[in-house]
């Protein structure tokens, strides 16, 4: 609740005028909140519906899934689909471990390598910088499908296939999308801050560590959340590089419910999809504290 909506109740000796002023302000504030709700609640419901549909399928018996017209409320709800889906056919707990290893590593790796590169591109002056930056962007522009085979051959020559290495090592060497994102954020930080720090004897790296990074917490949180989700849901690369079934990840496990000719265990797939999405939501929900702290810091230092 925003503090501006509350008039100071306990105080004595308030003039009639100030009471009216406070009341008008409170009414205006209430109107604003209601307006915002009117705009965001329907959208939220719309966005939640598919998720409910997923949940509904997850709780159905196979024979109820395709009943036409569709029924939204499963009767009786099959809670065991969650347990069966997670344990019966695919060792999801093992895959969760694998996914956590890869995801954790890649969040750290991306933060490290992308912060450095973005810092260079955003705030250091050098020859050929523009061309190099276009090259960074350029690597996002070639469709994955045509580099798939050469890339696989490369990792095969390094004897990295069927290990986590092709999925984890590149994270430490930058990801164009994140470099670009961080660069944009780093460029919004006022230049005077650097200059002042330099006068105080701060080195290039000291500026990055003491000024740029603390002021960029919302951006860093964004990168962390995106890296988390990207790796969490990443499906094709792990599938291509990992051969042993005990090295698989959650996303591959999910895909294992799918067979030929639409022959799919929909109920289990939806149950596990639901379970897999929950941690992402928790991470995002918690990461928001970082976003908020970000403003406070900016406010203090800026």
């Amino acid at each position: 609740m925003s503090s501006t909506t509350a008039a100071p109740q306990g105080q004595r000796g308030i003039t009639l005028r100030s009471v009216r002023w406070y009341r008008r302000k409170a009414v205006r504030e209430l109107a604003r909140v209601v307006c915002v709700y009117i705009l965001i609640v329907p959208g939220a419901i719309l966005l939640l519906l598919p998720f409910l549909w997923m949940l509904s399928t997850a709780l159905k018996l196979p024979k109820q899934i395709f009943v036409f017209p569709p029924q939204l409320i499963p009767n009786p709800p099959q809670w065991r689909n969650f347990v069966d889906g997670w344990t019966k056919y695919v060792p999801f707990t093992l895959y969760l471990r694998n996914t956590l290893i890869i995801t954790g590593n890649n969040i750290l790796g991306n933060l490290f390598s992308c912060c450095l590169a973005a810092y260079g591109f955003a705030r250091l002056r050098a020859r050929g910088k523009d061309v190099l930056f276009l090259l960074v962007l350029g690597t996002m522009m070639l469709p994955f499908w045509v580099t798939l085979i050469p890339q696989y051959v490369l990792f095969s020559r390094l004897r990295w296939t069927n290990t986590f290495l092709p999925l984890t090592v590149p994270a430490w060497f930058g990801w164009p999308f994140f470099i670009f994102l961080l660069r944009q954020f780093f460029m919004t930080i006022p230049r005077d801050l650097d200059a002042a720090a330099r006068i105080d004897g701060c080195s290039t790296w000291g500026i990055l560590w003491r000024i740029i990074l603390p002021l960029s917490k919302p951006a860093l949180a964004t990168v962390a959340v995106f890296a988390f989700i990207g790796n969490w849901n990443n499906f094709l690369s792990p599938l291509i590089y990992l051969r042993d079934q005990d090295k698989y990840t959650l996303a591959i496990g999910l895909q294992r419910f799918q067979g030929v000719h639409g022959n799919m265990q929909y109920h289990h797939m939806m149950a596990v999809s639901t379970l897999i999405v929950l941690p992402i939501l928790v991470v995002y929900f918690l990461a928001q504290r970082l976003f908020v702290r970000g403003i406070v810091m900016t406010g203090m230092k800026g």
Binding site: G120, L124, A126, V136, I179
Partner: peptide
């Protein structure tokens, strides 16, 4: 420093 910073990516 610039080249150092972008070296992991490079």
């Amino acid at each position: 420093d610039f080249y150092l910073a972008i070296s992991p990516w490079a």
